[in-house]
Design a protein around this nucleic acid. Sequence first.
DNA 1: CGCCTTTGACCAGCGC
DNA 2: GCGCTGGTCAAAGGCG
Length: 319
Amino acid sequence: MSDEHRDHHVYYHDLFHDNQKPASNNIAGSSAYNLQGFDPSSYISFTESLQAPMDYNSLASAFGLSPPSSEVFSSIESNPNYKPTTAEVADLGGGGGGGGGGSDIPVVSTPNSSISSSSTEIGAEEDSGKSKKDRLSKEVEDGGESSKKVGKGKKKGEKKLREPRFAFMTKSEVDHLEDGYRWRKYGQKAVKNSPYPRSYYRCTTQKCGVKKRVERSFQDPSVVITTYEGQHNHPVPATLRGNAAGIFPPSMFTPPTGGATPFPHHQDLFQMMNSQGGSAGSNMYSQQNQQYHHHHHHQLPDYGLLQDIIPAMFFKQEP
DNA sequence: CGCCTTTGACCAGCGC
DNA sequence: GCGCTGGTCAAAGGCG
């Protein structure tokens, strides 16, 4: 395994399962989207389903700060009672092998990104995409999850509730991207129609039920699809925190002024992003971290803030 | 010694 | 009801 993170491209795209979502959600149609021209209707339904009081503009501006050339796609499962479907399982990883229509995925992207092509990667295989059905109307209450065992009888009629998820695609050679948190792998499964396995991770912090799923796109092996589920109820481990610029643009965070970034990977990321299309201030960082010593891979927080920020913005906060 | 990965088995949901 | 598939468990092993 290599410790280096290279060529990081992050793709975000919005995915929300709106039950009766008309065909207007087709990705092709959204190819023209960009954060500033994002389809209002989609936004609304998205927000509504999230029940998040946040202002979209803040989000948009946040993403809008991305390097001009970055290609970003994120997907979010906003429905707290969301029930994964097959297609989504295939795409973003979901539970239960249900059917699923994977083509209704609204997309949010930054300017200059070519959504259609990339989004295709994500939703590419709806091979047996059936219709997904939604049901369930329990109240979501994160947290509870310790008593679910495989071989044991489970609680009465309690259903396993799944938290909203946030997925994004990153161009990287490493499967498991450092994000500042500590994870323990608890499973790996082969993905249907894909030669690449999917790994399941869980935040090791006690009481934190955040899960993470990592898989490589079978369409484009250079792309890694990471899906977060839940929100951390604790801060990033002190030993792991530090530079968390990660995939977010410099403007969103305090630039590593003064000192060299201990994580050249970031630099690579920025360079990559900037170089791609770019004309944005590119060597802001590139001149700094020329050298560094290799740290253990566990000490390379990359996308920590991604989790800190995205969930906070999109995920339904518990009362 | 503690923490983590590996790995096969098992479980749950859905389609047929 | 059976079979498929994704998701999870937990025992065993690995590594610092």
